[in-house]
Amino acid sequence: MEGPSVTGTRGSVLILMPAFNEAGTIGMVLERVRQHARDCDVLVVNDGSRDGTRGAVEAAGVAQIVLPCNLGYGPALQAGFRYAEMAGYPTVVLLDADGQHDPADIPRVLEAMDRSGADVVIGSRFVNGGWYSGPLPRRLGMQFFSLVTGLVIGQRIFDTTSGFKALRRVAYRPLISGHFLDFHAECLVFWGKLGLRIAEVPIATRPRSDGRSMYSWFTLMNYPFKTLMLMMLGLMDARRRRPLR
């Protein structure tokens, strides 16, 4: 495989967008990415979509990994990480394809990474006292995992469930294999214990305008249990590895 296609001065950044049945929004999101992240390469991981997502991505002229069946958010991202590692991208930015994240924030997240020297920068909804208007159980869950993560790694992370992140290679490479659910709190604990530096920058989010959330009632009930279990596994795994920093 050829090396990364470097198009800018920052170095090579790959914007990774997992997408499942996002035909209604992905075209608009890719257009916004073009406007605001000109120096970056873009890769969509089409997670076995059954709507017109594939055509929308092709129409936008963006590269995509088309998975032959729906694997879920985690394995779809892992496919992207695998590709990024093979192509040698030093930095990967994760962005949701549902239009909830504003691609205009990408430069700010990357600047924060350059400025702070952090290995992981989280686009955070709450770091500056932001407010999430979702259901109460979900808000309580977010608070709980923020608290637990803080206790375990000794750093308060305000938004543990953000899907908008910038990761250096040292952070995304260990995620290619292993147990991860949605790369939320379990990942933060893993990174923290590996000695990686984590920073948060405020971002704007908007409600999903089309498509369906990947969280059903069943997955939401399962989520805390699975995440706690994965946090423990992540801790054990990080202990086995040598600290990266």
Binding site: M1, R38, D41, V62, I65, L67, L71, R82
Partner: peptide, 23 residues
């Protein structure tokens, strides 16, 4: 599934499309 997806992308082009605006 990941292998198939990545192989198809590799077969299509050696690297992700550059940003058309920039190109």
């Amino acid at each position: 599934a990941q292998h198939i997806g990545i192989s198809e992308l590799e077969a299509k082009s050696q690297a992700p499309e550059r940003n058309p605006v920039e190109v």
